[in-house]
Design a protein around this nucleic acid. Structure first.
Lengths: 190, 190
DNA sequence: TGTAATTATTAACCTATATTAATAATTATA
DNA sequence: TATAATTATTAATATAGGTTAATAATTACA
């Protein structure tokens, strides 16, 4: 399990074997069966999770009880509630498993102290966070400039792997429309 | 000018005087008069800008020619096109000045080499990027869960300073509605 | 494998927000 | 200060996407 993470880090910034050994000792494995929770809103998200296998998602629930998906985290992705972690406030998000999932947990305090021991890890997370910000910015622009249909087509192109493993209503939730309307859009396509 | 940036960095992670001196030598000042551009779509955004005075904004233009604002950058904020910088693709954004503005420019290559000389700067930008991601995530959730009116009220609370210096149509553009509809919302409020 | 639970589709009707266009108010600048 | 340019308001009309509810298809699991 941990080797998968080490490989991922090495793909961003190369570690030496001593650094690899430090990392091997610090992560806790955790199994999250399908439909169970990693994080519930109201809790403090003082950790991040690296998905070794399976798929997680984070989502908010609106006042009418509808779910709105912020992020999918398939294999090799990190997931957390950055807002809760950074602002030190209770999370407004839930994180649960769409499939049986295995993750590696990194506590925020542990992460911060690791940055002093292994500065390359600060680089790794700086780069990951930059990429996440770039993607999030792009998503914002898509909301502002595209129709629901265009957003759906973009999602299909961008996440061809995800699209076949998750229910369609989750795609609707991510692109910001109702499942009924997504059905209608799909029916329209000749 | 540069002292303002140094002060800002020190607010996040304390520099020693040698580090401060390195920084003093590396930034280029630039004046951007109101309504002129720092970045035009199609160009590569291989730099970031720290706003010392004034206010910039980044925005996309849709196929009908309408502007959609991604970010405002008043005093003490950084602005760039992270997507273009990270993916090394031409920018889809424009950045221009809402007021007469002074910025400090940091080239991306220069930034990356600085990270080796002054690891604290990598920390500084890691933290800034985490904050930007947290804010961006929150904005996404707001789009998914709130009505236009609620987003407007939230904007007023979140950016009370900005709201009095920029035209109302820019607020509409940021929260994702037309200026006409924002007028209507404002008229509704007793 | 059969039954229950979940997910997807369809259709009629509804609403938040967009569009268009005209006018008023504000701001920039000659 | 007057004139032009920009921004804001108002109102009538249009539409993308939501809501509700019923049914069909798929998937989970006893």
């Amino acid at each position: 399990m941990i080797e998968k993470l080490i490989q991922h880090i090495n793909g961003v910034t190369a570690l030496n074997s001593e650094e690899e050994n430090v990392i091997r000792e610090l992560f806790k494995e955790k199994v999250i069966p399908r439909k169970t929770f990693l994080l519930r809103s109201g809790e403090f998200a003082n950790y991040s999770a690296f998905v070794v296998e399976g798929c997680l998602r984070s989502y908010a629930i609106d006042k009418d009880g509808y779910e709105h998906i912020l992020q999918f985290a398939p294999e090799n992705w990190w997931i957390s509630d950055m807002y809760s972690a950074v602002k030190q406030v209770p999370s407004e998000l839930n994180i649960d498993a769409l499939l049986d999932t295995k993750v590696l947990i990194l506590q925020r305090t542990c992460q911060l102290s690791l940055f002093d021991r292994i500065p390359k890890l600060e680089r790794y997370f700086r780069i990951l966070t930059e990429n996440a910000l770039a993607a999030s910015n792009h998503r914002t622009i898509d909301y502002l400039t595209l129709t629901a249909k265009q957003r759906y087509e973009k999602f299909c192109n961008l996440y061809p792997t995800i699209i076949n493993t998750i229910p369609q209503k989750s795609v609707a939730s991510y692109i910001g429309i109702t499942p009924e309307f997504l059905s209608k859009l799909r029916a329209e396509r000749t």
